[in-house]
Structure formats: C-alpha cells, structure tokens
Design a protein around this nucleic acid. Structure first.
Lengths: 141, 141
DNA sequence: CCGGTTCTGCGACCTGGTCGCATCGGTATC
DNA sequence: GATACCGATGCGACCAGGTCGCAGAACCGG
C-alpha cells in the first residue's frame, strides 16, 4: 500500500528528518517485502528503483530508521542481519541446514525471560537473535 | 593440568590426526583458560607459546578439534565466536551494554525446545547462540 | 631414517559492514 | 520562487573476522 509508505515518510518528516529518494526507496522495498529482508537484498531492491543509491547510504538509512523506531534488525545466524518494519516483531527460527527462516509462536520465551530476570536480573532481548536449529524437513531423511 | 592436555592430544592421535606444536599450543591455551575464549584470544595465547603459528592454522585447528568433538564454538553476539572444551557446554548470557558474559542456569531452554519440536518439528540448538540482553548492573542506574 | 601424506605459514581474498570527505539537495525562511 | 544552511549522499578506502590455495615443512608408520 502506497500510503503505508507515505505514513512512514511522514514519521520521518515529523521527527525533523529529510525525505530523500534513497530513503523512499528503502522504505518502499521494506513495505513491499512484507517480512524480513536481508541487508544486501535491501541494497539490491533499493537500487532497482534508484540505481544510484550506494550501499553505505542504505546501511545509514537503516540505522536512522532503526533509531526512529520504524524498523528493527535481527540476526539470523552467522553474519547476516535482516530488517523488518517494527510493528511486525516476531521470533525467527532458522534452519542451519537449509537456511529456511520461519516464524516462531508468539510469547515463546516469556517464561524463560521471566525466569532470567528473577534469577539473574538479566533482561533478555529475545527477538534480537533468531533461534537456530534444524527444521523438520532437514531432520527426516 | 598437563595430563588433561595429554589426554586430548591422545584423542587426536587415536583418530589418526597428527600432533603438532600448533595443535598442542591451541589445546594448552584452551585447557588453561578453563572457560570460553574468543578466537582472536586463542590466536594471541597460542602465539605466546609458539610465536610462529599463523592465524589461519589456528582457525583450521579449531575446525579440526570441533570435527573430532573436542571443542565447540558458540556465538556471543555480533561477529565474535568463542570456543570451549566440549565437556563444558552451557548456555551463555551476554550483556549488550558492557559485553559481560555469564553462564545461564542449566536446562533453561528445555521447555521451549520441547514445545518447538512438538509444534513445528524444529530441533532447537540452544547452546549455539548466546542469549543477548542487558545485565542487572547495566539496567539499574 | 625414509617416504608419503598431512599440516603449516603465507598472503590474498571474502563477506558484511563502517568511515571520512567533498558535494549534493531537502527544507525553512524570506 | 530564490536562498542558504546543514544534513544526506556517493565514493572509495578501510575494518573485523574468517577462509582459501599453494608450496614447502614436518609428523609418524614402516
């Protein structure tokens, strides 16, 4: 939806941030993807609509959007980071064999988080890293 | 303990692997540390006893040791990997603010792992990634 | 102590991300 | 509209953490 994009650009403007073609391209890619997107995917897609945008600009744009609370990034294992709109937080499961990424049941870590807070005073940030393991298809034969 | 080291070197020999100064140095560093050690720490320490060992050799040695089941590596967030002897597996908690790494209660993820296996057939590998969050000291004042 | 195979040192390379700098161009103001 | 300010951009170099291919060294069974 185009006005989803406009809304997000509006939040930028509202916080005194500039609306530029590069930022528009990143946000459009994010909205169109409707799910998480790797940083390099985002580079590709944004460059499809605005060929001149530089990799570094996209990383900087993502930092800005994250600072403003528009997107969040998660780590899907190893090096790769993925971004999605922040109203769509959820826990990811990633299969180490086939690389497939799925969504975990919500509130999966509630009990664990509560327990860690009580026992160690440690405030777990569950969504920030994916849960790694092996998916059903890759375990069977 | 020196014969801890000898035991491990023995396992190598037994599997048809060669015992070399580089491998000895890595294993000694690991045994002496008695806990997890970052890959680059390991490079430093191994080079302290055998200055000529190359970074690449240490990474290869760690791969070999992992293949033989002697060590395991875990990811402590971002890029850094840490290694420890495989009889000392445990879950790590890492504070994103101060970087401090502590040990989590054992079996912390048992219930979650069971649930994921039932609902999605997904076999979680809990120890492989640390739990990130914020430690008690960094939250308070 | 010899030979064959495995390890090693070396340096180049790779991925994923960051930085400094000069320039460009949104936006507020007039 | 036109202007000017300052933040955003493009660019290429750089960084961390790790991997690879190769030629030569060295382990270890005989």
């Amino acid at each position: 939806m185009g006005h989803r994009v406009d809304d997000l650009l509006g939040t930028l403007r509202h916080q005194g941030e500039r609306v530029t073609p590069a930022r528009r391209a990143v946000i459009e890619a994010l909205v169109a993807a409707d799910g998480h997107l790797g940083a390099e995917d985002l580079v590709d897609r944004a460059q499809r609509s605005v060929p001149s945008v530089h990799r570094a600009t996209i990383y900087r744009t993502l930092d800005t959007l994250e600072r403003l609370g528009v997107v969040v990034h998660v780590h899907l294992g190893h090096g790769r980071a993925a971004y999605h709109l922040s109203d769509d937080v959820h826990q990811h499961l990633v299969c180490e064999v086939c690389g497939d990424v799925t969504e975990a049941p919500p509130r999966l870590f509630d009990a664990v988080a509560r327990r860690l807070l009580q026992s160690d005073g440690f405030a777990m940030r569950p969504y920030h890293f994916a849960v790694v393991g092996e998916c059903a298809r890759c375990q069977d034969p």
